[in-house]
């Protein structure tokens, strides 16, 4: 008994280890104990036995998990359908748009011709040309931005590009 009292003192001072705390909780309590501290340790012990008390809790969890698996498969199926539909719609739209465009401009040559034909076969040369062209644009751009009131629009576009990148 004396040993227990020592342990209790130690407990209230926060100095007990886990084994000591266990021995405080897991000891035979007399049913009619009126000692409040004893009831407290009894309480701690019983508190650990509290169970989640809802009927069919496990069954419901398993059902939800299985349901979720099914749902995921369903969603991915829908996803592919959406993708397919989007592709079809866009291709159709593209064809319609292209046909429309070439219809209004009868004199236009097949655009692919010029897009696909390179003036240069040597990448180094083509790169040199590109470099020059870009520098030219760059130079003119700067000249323009120094001069025009369109600068506002220009920097706005830059901001948008920044966000985009």
């Amino acid at each position: 008994m004396k040993e227990m009292d020592e342990l209790k003192k130690k407990y209230w001072k926060g100095r007990t280890d886990r084994d000591e705390e266990r021995s405080l909780k897991n000891r035979p309590f007399s049913h009619d104990t009126t000692h409040v501290e004893d009831i407290y340790f009894q309480y701690l012990n019983e508190k650990k036995n509290e169970k989640i008390n809802f009927p069919d809790f496990d069954v419901e969890i398993i059902r939800k998990i299985k349901g979720q698996q099914g749902e995921q498969r369903f969603i991915s199926k829908i996803g592919y359908w959406r993708l397919a539909a989007a592709v079809i719609i866009l291709i159709t739209a593209g064809i319609l748009f292209f046909n429309n465009q070439s219809g209004t401009q009868t004199s236009a040559p097949p655009p692919e011709n010029l897009v696909l034909t390179d003036t240069y076969n040597d990448p180094e040369k083509a790169f040199e040309e590109t470099k020059k062209a870009l520098l030219f644009i760059s130079n003119k751009l700067n000249k323009g931005t120094e001069l025009t009131s369109e600068f506002a629009k220009f920097s706005e576009t830059q901001e948008n590009l920044k966000k985009e990148n």
Binding site: I52, N53, F57, D58
Partner: peptide, 26 residues
């Protein structure tokens, strides 16, 4: 799944509400 009671007790100690604690465990 066997941890459910321990999880439930912990949730209930925070929430003081068995029903809410059950939702948390779920």
């Amino acid at each position: 799944l066997p941890l459910k009671n321990k999880l439930y007790r912990f949730a209930k100690s925070i929430l003081d509400d068995g029903e809410l604690a059950k939702d948390v465990v779920q």
